[in-house]
Design a protein around this nucleic acid. Structure first.
Length: 316
DNA sequence: AAAGTGGCCAACCGCGTTATT
DNA sequence: CAATAACGCGGTTGGCCACTT
């Protein structure tokens, strides 16, 4: 009955990924695409469960991921969207295609919460800390929580995501066909952040996953000793600069936007096209636009995905 | 210079939903 | 239709690193 197990539970490795494992995973995904995670451990020989592989890919290795410092615009978007959607990080991440939900979640927990603490009075601070995730809205959403149930809010956003997916599907007629993946859909919506490509100067040194992998490969080729191969360490300390830039067709950081897995169906963004500000973005970037009533919030929820889709359609 | 402390983030865990047999 | 596992998401944690004392 049912499906066969994805992987043996015994002998599964946990903990930080090594560059070798990253390379094996990327190589596998290049060959088979980011689908059917169940088969990934088998195909790669990795002693990781499929779940771990998927997580590693979506949060770290996937092309188009921007790492490092968040821009003020991104901050504002996160703050506004969190107020609107609650801790639905995946939904929030859909508006920041270059950021992973995990990244946004971490940034919220480590930076933005504190920032808001400093700006809010004590009552709100307590609410933010004490409330459960899904019903811990900030002032904006709490103001209309009685008139608009959480389930309804969620439904509305899910409908929005469905619309985005539809938009993506329709856009495939004009694009090369790709296996559908929500993250890819997200990427294609608005792949031209004003700051994309510029974050390579940041402290983390990660502008994109192509860059990530190139760095991993460089450091690994220089020092294949597993004892030195902890990814976390490398990601923060390695700045080697030899000529091992493009194994697996990954290009150098400078052209990461045009990049990456050449032969495989991984959507690539164009870094030099900047879509016009959507209505949503205008609202998000406008500090003075606070949701004051149910109608406004509902309108925004209804408008946003369509608006985002319209903005996204300009990219295809 | 060493020890202590807190911040940050990658990865894991658990749960709800979806897909497959 | 039921059982089971995969998938996806949000919450939590462990460990590294930087800063402070």
């Amino acid at each position: 009955m049912g499906r066969p197990p994805c992987c043996e539970k015994v002998g599964v490795k946990k903990g930080p990924w090594t560059p070798e494992e990253d390379i094996m995973l990327v190589s596998c995904i290049q060959d088979h695409g980011p689908a059917n995670w169940r088969s990934v451990p088998t195909n790669t020989g990795l002693l990781r469960c499929s779940k771990s592989c998927r997580l590693r890919w979506t949060n770290y290795l996937r092309p188009g991921i921007k790492r490092g410092n968040f821009t003020p615009q991104e901050e504002k978007m996160i703050i506004h969207l969190q107020a609107l959607l609650g801790n639905r990080w995946a939904a929030i991440a859909s508006y920041l295609p270059q950021r992973t939900d995990n990244d946004i979640k971490n940034y919220w927990n480590t930076h933005l919460k504190k920032k808001l603490h400093n700006n809010h009075h004590p009552q709100q601070q307590e609410e933010e800390e004490g409330g459960s995730p899904s019903d811990s809205p900030t002032a904006a959403s709490s103001s209309h929580k009685h008139s608009k149930g959480q389930w309804e809010r969620r439904l509305q956003t899910d409908i929005g995501l469905a619309k985005q997916a539809l938009c993506h599907a329709l856009s495939l007629h004009q694009n090369s066909s790709k296996p559908f993946d929500l993250h890819h859909t997200k990427q294609q919506q608005r792949q031209s952040s004003p700051t994309s490509g510029s974050t390579s100067n940041n402290s983390s040194g990660y502008a994109s996953s192509a860059d990530n992998i190139a760095r991993l490969l460089r450091s690994w080729m220089k020092n294949p000793d597993p004892a030195h191969s902890d990814t976390t360490q490398n990601s923060k300390t390695n700045n080697h600069n030899n000529n091992f830039d493009s194994l697996f067709s990954f290009s150098s950081p400078s052209d990461a936007g045009s990049q990456s897995v050449e032969s495989k169906p991984i959507p690539i963004q164009s870094n030099d096209t900047t879509p016009p500000l959507s209505l949503l973005e205008k609202w998000l970037f406008d500090d003075t636009s606070i949701i004051t009533n149910t109608t406004t919030a509902a309108d925004l929820i209804n408008m946003a995905p369509i608006d985002a889709a319209v903005a996204a359609s300009g990219l295809f």
